[in-house]
Amino acid sequence: MLEVQDVVTSYGMIQALKGVSLAARTGEVTCILGPNGAGKTTLLYTIAGILRPRSGSVRFEGRELAGVPADQVVRRGISLVPENRLVFAHMTVRENLLAGAYARLGRDGGGVKVDLEAMLERFPILRQRAGQAAGTLSGGEQQMLAVARALMARPRLLMMDEPSLGLAPMIVEQIFEIVAALNREGITVLLVEQNARLALSIAHHAYLLEQGRIAFRGTPSEVSANEAISRAYLGIKRG
């Protein structure tokens, strides 16, 4: 579904991605592990079109994405739930959800209404808070809102950047259950996560990104079997 080939992305003089290749297969959860500063967020931002790769290609459903501006990438079927969630703090929960469907609003008004209702159904807490400013929500609620908002664009590929960041363990498990459920419903997921143990529990494939390069790829059981990796990333219990 998504194929990233030899992508190089830099910030000014600093190369953050030094030729990364990976694939996310339809219907699977692919997770990207790696230490802070390895380039995980940069990779997601490059796919989302916010950063432009210096070289390499990003193909989604057979079409080239590299160089397509961010607001168009959404229309191709990719949504990103950004790190720290970035909800529209001064807008209501309902407005946030509608903003999520921005790319569809003109063409598919009826569908948006149906989806809005479906989101409020799936996330009852959001229905309770529908008229409230998103900034007043708790961290976990904001994360759910961010996921729901991304879903409002009806993505075929959902990318998530550190969804567990700063959340209590119980909430984190809840979020991961939601991700697994979404995946079972057919949404392909590309997940960046520090909490390797949890990420691997729902992933079909995993990549290890270190210093802008893919250092390892395999199934979750292969990752766990690799002693060095499991010591570095699974040894420390997080969350």
Partner: peptide
């Protein structure tokens, strides 16, 4: 208002 709130998030919504 969405752009004013977070232009980054608005971009991600396709704005």
């Amino acid at each position: 208002r969405a752009v004013a709130d977070s232009s980054e998030a608005a971009t991600l919504m396709g704005v």
